[in-house]
Structure formats: structure tokens, C-alpha cells
Design a protein around this nucleic acid. Sequence first.
RNA 1: GGAGAAAUGGCAGAGCGGUCUAAUGCGGCAGUCUUGAAAACUGUUGUGGGUAACACCACCGGGGGUUCGAAUCCCUCUUUCUCCGCCA
Length: 424
Amino acid sequence: MLQISYIRENKDEVIKRLAIKNFAAAETLINQVIQLDVERRNAQKDADGVKAEANQLARQIGDLMKSGKKEEAETIKGQTAELKQKEKQFDDVLKSKEEEIQHILLQVPNLPDTTVPAGKTPEDNEVVFEYGNKPALPENALPHWELAAKYDLIDFELGVKLTGAGFPVYKGKGAKLQRALINYFLDRAEKEGYNEVQPPILVNEDSAYGTGQLPDKEGQMYHVGVDNLYMIPTAEVPITNIYRDVILKESELPVKNCGYTPCFRREAGSYGKDVRGLNRLHQFDKIEIVQIAHPEKSYATLEGMRQYVAALLTELELPFRTLKLCGGDMSFASALTYDMEVFSGAQKRWLEVSSVSNFETFQTNRLKCRFKDTNGKTQLAHSLNGSALALPRIVAALLENNQTPEGIKIPKVLLPYTRFGIIN
RNA sequence: GGAGAAAUGGCAGAGCGGUCUAAUGCGGCAGUCUUGAAAACUGUUGUGGGUAACACCACCGGGGGUUCGAAUCCCUCUUUCUCCGCCA
């Protein structure tokens, strides 16, 4: 959520930058919210004034009662009825203004960083880095879902029986490969200075609001109605919400946490070849990295996170590219996002395996995650996160790219974790 | 799930209808003293709104109520603790 104080002082810039995100309603909403803000402050002044008066009368009554002047106290009591009524009126106005402002602010996306390219669709994303050669596979190379069946690694039909489409069952070496990747990613993150946490995978409403899943993306989460809890679509939600209503010391920044969780997404409306095999699932595993950073250092932090994810992909010997997302393809909350895509040799397409973003103060404003700077002033921290990494598409690429007539070869870095070098 | 107790500032803990602008202790910060440190002493130390700056307003787990006035009384929710039941 943008800060109203920032909008107030930088109105034109805000509107201009929202245009990069193709946010059509920007000008209307911003003007509305500025007007409401004026009205809100007036209402507050009115309400405060009445309250101050009432407080004073109450104090007077107290003094009179103590000194035994009961009749005088009663007289003053008579004056309070009108004040009370006015107080309620002003409070109601104040409350409604606040709600209206909140309602609008929740609809306004984050401002894109000044370096974000304009654009509407994924075609407008900027390729900023590319690494590795696409594998030279024979024409009859198999897509991962066929390899998974051939070597009995992943059983999609069984998942349908147990739960439904998009909930695969990993078996044998397929299951072990999952476990190996999880452990590898966690060990690697720890080496990178991240503190491992194991958060709940169900969160309450407050947490879902905190990171911005609510009120907007309600339909994308599984909701446990009886207890009003949401299954997390990403570990970002619980791990970032650790810092909800927290004031950190400047010396504690940056906070670096990582965690492995299953992730749950309803993916309503998805269909076709995009969802084949592991390409898009309702439940999948992911290791997430989250940082709370000093505002002046958050872009350096973002670059560091992007480098880290690139290193993981390099170590896994997967060809990948890094995209800087254009305004139209960025998420609502992000100020700058890099997507990392691996090349899946048999499908012959790029698969997104990580998305690394700086949210600046957009999340922390909602979360009220702040730090005390050296001058003793409290200010909002910046939040960042990234996948490091999401498993299914990594598995898809590993299976497809490393297939040989003898079997599927496991990359060297994973050998200590899988303790097998080939799937055959 | 049942019965009882509790929730106060960074922490501990008092306050149980008016002066709470929340005692006291610990911790933090600044200063005095010291070559430096410790100790001692002095001051300071929550968040948000509002203002040019003051004033002022709100917040004692969340929400609602009683009252001229609520940390204090009532209702409700949540959480924690103790006991019982169940259980990986």
C-alpha cells in the first residue's frame, strides 16, 4: 500500500509512474484520495476539538466533586450531552473518510522503479542476462511427463485419485530427487547467510492482508472455512509476516530468512499446455528467500538475491535467462521484479522458476514493519523476496535436459543429496 | 473438548472509577566523574494522528458497552497459564 503522505507530496510523479504499470484509474483515484485526505484531516480536527473540550469538562467535574460542590458539577454535566453527540458525529465522519481512503489505497498498485521498462505483455520484458547453451537433444527427446512415467518418478493419475489434478505423487527416485533439491537449496541458502525458518503453511486473515494476498487475490488461495485460515500460496506470506508490527533496530538490518514450504494455488482459469505435467500445479514445493532491508540498500540487496538465484541455476547446470519485467507484467505489489527462466529442452520453452522482487515500502506499510534509524526516527523498512527455488519446473528441466539413452543424469552438486547419479 | 486464572511500556511489575501526562526496578540512550572502563549520580527513553512549531487527540490483548469521566466496571472474541479429557 502506498503511503498517503507520499501521495500527498508527490502527486504528479505518482500518477506518472503508475502509468508505467498501465494503471488506468491512476489519476482519478489519486485525485480522489487526496481530496479525501483533506476531508479526513478536517474531520480529525473537529473530532479532536470536541474531545478536548469534553475531556476538560470531565476534569472540572472531577475537581468539583472532590471539593464537594455537587450542584455545580451537575450543571456542567448538563453541558456534556451536546458534546457527546457532536463527538459521535465527527468520529463517524472520520471513520468513514478513513475507510474510503483505505479502500482506494488498496486498489492502487506499487510504483514501479524508475528503471522499469514500459510495456504491456510478457513480450515487453527485457532479457538482461542469459547463461548456458540449450541442450542438443535428439528429435525424439521426451517431455518430462513422459520421462516421469517411463521411470516411475511422478504419478499424476494417482494424484488425481487421491486429491485431484495438479496434486502429483512423487515416487521412488522422483521423491528422493525432491528431497535432495529441498535440502540442497536450504543448505545453500544457509551458506548465503539466510536464517532457516519453518513457518506454518496456514495463515490467518491478518497475514494474508499483510503481504497483499487479500483483499485482492482471494480466489487464488485455498480457504479453510471452518477456521477462517488460508493455505499459503508461497512462504513469503508467513515469513514476511514475522515482521508485522515489528520495529527493528537499524543494526539488525538486513534480516535474511529462508524457508521451505509446500505452496498451494488454486490457479483458477488455467488450462492447456501450460498446465501439462509439472508446468503448473496446485501444490508444489518451494524454498523462499526473504529480506528486510534498509531503504538505501534494498536495490543492492535485490541484485544480490538475483545473483544468488543465478548461482543456483548455474550450479545445477541449467541454461537460464534473467528478465527484468516490464510495467505491465509486474505484480501489483512489486517495484522491480526479475524473473529467472530455465530452458526446458524437450518442451523447447522457457519456464519461470524464480521471481525476485523489491517491494520497497509497499508491503511494510501494510505490515507496519519499521526500523529505528540512527537519529532515533522510525521509518518503514523495505521488503524483498525471491524463490530459491521452486521445484517442479526445475525438476522438469532437469529430467528433460539430462535425458540420455542410459537414463537421466543427476547434476554433480546434487550427488551428495541424492546419492544416486542416474535415474534408469 | 471441559473447569479455573490471567493479558499493562523493550523486559519484570504496581495501579482496580477522576490528579494515569501509568509507580517502581531492570535494560537502552545522553551527560557528570575517569587516562579508559566499571560503579555512582543526573537527565532521557512507546506508537500513531495532528501542527510551521506548539497545543491537542487516540492507544494499558482485539471489538463493543456503562459513565460527565474507564487501564480500572460490564459483554464478547482472541491468546497464555494451571487442572481434567483426548492425541502424533
